Amino acid sequence: MSGLVIQRLTTFTVSVKQFGRVPNILNRLPSSLPSPSPTVSASQVPRLFREPYILTGYRPLHQNWYCYLLSLFQKHNESINVWSHLLAAPLLLLRWWSHFGALGYPSDISALPLCLFIASALTCYFCSSMAHLFQSHSEQAHYYVFFMDYVGVAVYQYGCALGHYFYTSAPGWRATIFGQYFLHGTAFLGLMSSVGCCVAKSRYRKPYPLQRKICQLIPSSQAYFLGISPVVHRLLTVSWGEEPSLKLHALQIVCFLCSAVFFSCPIPERFFPGKCDIFCHGHQIFHILLSLTTLCQLEALFQDFTRNRENIVDIFGENQIWWACVSFPVLAVLCLLVAFVSMKYMHKKLKQD
């Protein structure tokens, strides 16, 4: 199964790399629609929009909003960041629907955490795609769309935690202090992840100090390590031959940790300044690896769900499943409030500047 996932992602990656060979769709649009301006160099955009070692491919600011929408079909240094998630989302949805169909489209409460997992992943992908697509419009738009991106990340973290808790966790782990406070802790850390990223984004300006990275990474990394703890426990205590899903869980952890490296470090563009502007810079690789992480999660969780389906309600009880799932929209609303407060703060700050 892991080979199937890798094969699908490889096909997707090849398709993305052929992006530049596609005929220019913009030339076929009616002349009444605005067309995106040609891309510019880093020196022609404000410091806020410049990325380390990315020298060209920036979209000019203050174009019509339609221009940024139509830049979907333009080559620029955000193209792969947008398309990587726009293409991964329907692939993820198709795999989910295929698995659901194979199980007879279950409608009982035991399948609810799985539905919320796919909803959280699609929310994260949508917010990320929109952020990278529209962030170049203006400084205010840049902040606003990335605040929403952080909402998507927090929701996705909790969606993963629901799947790991109800389908993958072992009784021995649930008896530990991590298991007893797992759902409360992952929800709280998801909210703190959103708060930390919004504060770091709104408070610090380039060149960014170390405090910004700390403010972002501490709550986000804590949320991840707590959320993945039931999976790690099972990987260490159960024979991988007994449960095929464990290989996929191991693969999702490897992919995520590799993606974290590319997110944190500007590689390979650091070693080839100007050569990775459009294709293959670190953030693009991060996006692709994150898509592979989610696909592996989906495949593994479906296997876990299929194996434990008959016992899930008996083990956890309907009330616990309902309360855990009701927490999902509550967390989303709280993260949205954090984003809106951050937007209001940045609006005042930009007016003062």
Rank of each mutant, 00 (worst) to 15 (best):
I6L: 15
I6H: 12
R8T: 04
T10C: 14
K17W: 12
G20L: 12
V22T: 08
P23C: 08
N24S: 15
I25K: 13
L33W: 13
P34V: 04
P34R: 14
P36S: 11
P38Y: 11
T39H: 01
A42Q: 05
A42I: 07
L48E: 14
Y53P: 02
T56K: 11
Y58P: 11
H62D: 13
Q63G: 01
Q63D: 08
N64F: 05
W65C: 10
Y66V: 04
Y68S: 08
L69N: 11
L72M: 15
I80F: 11
W83H: 03
L87K: 02
A88P: 07
A89E: 08
A89S: 15
L91S: 15
R95N: 14
R95V: 07
W97Y: 10
F100C: 09
G101Q: 14
G101A: 05
L103D: 04
P106M: 01
S110Y: 01
A111K: 09
L116K: 00
I118K: 14
I118Q: 15
S120M: 03
L122I: 15
L122P: 07
S129D: 06
S136H: 15
H137N: 05
A141E: 03
Y144P: 02
V145M: 04
F146P: 07
D149K: 06
D149V: 07
V153S: 09
A154W: 05
V155K: 10
V155E: 00
V155N: 03
Q157H: 12
C160R: 10
C160H: 09
G163E: 00
F166V: 08
F166C: 07
Y167L: 05
W173R: 05
R174E: 01
T176S: 15
G179D: 09
F182W: 03
T186Q: 11
A187V: 08
A187L: 02
A187E: 08
C197N: 06
C198D: 06
P209G: 12
R212D: 09
C215I: 09
Q216A: 03
P219W: 04
Y224N: 10
G227F: 00
I228P: 06
P230H: 11
V231S: 01
V231G: 05
V232E: 02
T237D: 10
S239K: 13
G241V: 03
E242M: 01
P244W: 01
L251E: 00
I253Q: 13
V254F: 02
V254N: 05
V254L: 15
C255I: 00
A260V: 13
A260F: 04
F262M: 01
F263G: 03
P266I: 06
I267R: 09
P268T: 00
E269Q: 08
R270L: 00
F271A: 13
P273T: 04
G274I: 00
H281K: 09
H281C: 13
G282W: 06
H283N: 13
I285M: 02
F286T: 05
H287I: 03
H287C: 03
S291R: 04
L292Q: 03
Q297V: 08
E299R: 11
F302K: 06
R307I: 13
R309M: 10
R309F: 06
N311Q: 00
N311H: 10
G317C: 09
I321G: 05
W322R: 15
A324W: 02
V326E: 07
F328D: 12
V330M: 15
V330L: 15
V330K: 12
A332H: 00
L337T: 13
V338W: 01
Y345G: 06
Y345M: 14
L350S: 13
Q352G: 02
